[in-house]
Amino acid sequence: MENIKQLVKNYPIIPACRTKEQFDDAVESQAKIIFILESDIYDFKDKINRVKDNGKYAFIHFDLIAGLAQDENALEYVKDMADPTGIITTRKNLIVKAKKLGMSTIQRMFLIDTTSIASAINMARQTKPDAIEIMPGIAPKVIKAIKSRIDTPIITGGLMTEEIEIKMALKAGAVAASLSKKKLWEFNCEED
């Protein structure tokens, strides 16, 4: 598989799906990567397989699979049952385990103050995920600050509702933006 940075090079929008409607639309979109944010023990396999069957890369938010423990055994189960491209998680131990299982990893980090920024940088240096997703995505200054201190590709998401916010995030150094708003999935960042 190509690395995350290569996958989003020509289309830096990642649909982030919570509802069935979002998921259905995302599978039909131009995006190469789809974030499955909500699933459960009954549907995660079908969702992952549908993404893969459509020639796209499935990243499942492991922490949000209802009905599964958020531990390493459950991670092995998901890998064995559906083999997603990768996982999204906030948990360091799951990043390490997923990498050992040959999965791509995205470490989601919530940034609320300067301490959380420093903690995010240290965590990324320790776990070496394939990418980090920083939230909220409306803080280009924070993207620049993190980008200047680590080489890990940055995906940004959360609270982004306008095209200008996507442009600012990409200009600040993010490689992609994960978005739940369908109207932004077809955004052409090369315009202007």
Results as ranks from 00 to 15, higher is better:
2 E>Y: 11
2 E>V: 11
3 N>Y: 10
3 N>L: 10
5 K>D: 09
6 Q>E: 15
6 Q>M: 14
8 V>K: 03
10 N>H: 13
12 P>T: 08
12 P>Q: 14
14 I>Y: 08
16 A>T: 05
16 A>S: 13
17 C>N: 09
23 F>Y: 11
24 D>M: 04
32 K>V: 01
34 I>K: 04
34 I>C: 09
37 L>W: 10
44 F>C: 07
44 F>H: 08
44 F>L: 08
45 K>M: 04
46 D>T: 02
48 I>T: 02
50 R>A: 14
50 R>E: 15
52 K>P: 00
53 D>C: 06
53 D>H: 05
54 N>V: 00
57 Y>A: 08
57 Y>N: 11
58 A>Y: 04
59 F>Q: 08
60 I>L: 12
64 L>P: 00
64 L>F: 14
65 I>Y: 03
66 A>S: 13
66 A>Y: 07
68 L>R: 02
68 L>D: 09
70 Q>T: 13
70 Q>P: 00
71 D>R: 06
73 N>I: 15
75 L>H: 01
75 L>T: 10
76 E>H: 12
77 Y>N: 06
78 V>I: 12
79 K>N: 14
80 D>E: 15
84 P>F: 02
91 R>D: 07
92 K>W: 02
97 K>N: 02
100 K>R: 10
100 K>V: 03
102 G>C: 07
102 G>R: 01
104 S>H: 12
104 S>Y: 13
104 S>L: 13
104 S>P: 01
106 I>A: 12
107 Q>M: 14
107 Q>C: 13
108 R>Y: 11
108 R>F: 08
109 M>L: 15
110 F>Q: 06
114 T>N: 15
117 I>D: 07
120 A>S: 14
121 I>R: 08
123 M>W: 01
126 Q>Y: 10
128 K>G: 03
129 P>L: 11
131 A>G: 08
133 E>R: 00
133 E>M: 04
134 I>A: 00
134 I>M: 07
137 G>M: 01
139 A>M: 15
140 P>V: 03
141 K>Q: 13
144 K>S: 15
145 A>R: 06
145 A>Q: 14
146 I>R: 03
147 K>A: 10
148 S>R: 10
149 R>T: 04
150 I>F: 08
152 T>Q: 06
154 I>G: 12
155 I>H: 11
156 T>G: 05
156 T>C: 06
157 G>F: 06
158 G>T: 03
159 L>D: 11
160 M>Y: 09
161 T>Q: 15
163 E>D: 12
163 E>N: 09
167 K>H: 12
168 M>R: 14
170 L>N: 03
182 K>C: 09
182 K>L: 12
183 K>H: 13
184 L>D: 10
188 N>P: 02
190 E>G: 00
191 E>H: 07
